[in-house]
Amino acid sequence: MTSVTVELGLMQPDGTPYTEAQMAKGGIADFDSMDGWVRLRHGEQSFDVGDLLLYAVGTLCETVVPELTGDGVAVYVAFGHQEELTFTRKGDVITISSAWRPGITLPAEPLLRALVGAGERFVAMLPALWEGALPEDIADYAGQVTAAAASLPPT
């Protein structure tokens, strides 16, 4: 199994989750302040990157994806908490490690593409999801995702 999926989600302050499908419907107040998660799945494995969702999606696409198109290391510094995730690519796998929890090793290419894919879905739902967003806000995100996608080798 080499596929990696990425699911997005939001969590209301009271802990109520919003699945990505729910997110797509929009109408979630204070979205821009809401935490959420970027859940990486690979087979039975799962790894969540939890953070301010706006920050998490954008940062993963902007920071991690372009940095790991080849072997290398990218660090995701959380916005809403103190965890730092180290993404290390060696060949075809990317290992995500944390000081606080067991890491996960995922196939590199599928991961990066899944992240970009998630970013694209996220950007697509932003107009409905983000009330009060300025066009340039959405454009900024879209730019980040586009840049990330562009960094990937062509399929």
């Binding site: 302050p13 009271d14 802990g15 998660w37 939890g50 809403g80 908490h81 965890e83």
Partner: peptide
Amino acid sequence: GKFELNTSPHM
């Protein structure tokens, strides 16, 4: 406190 959960549960 309103028990807002951290989305990074391990943290």
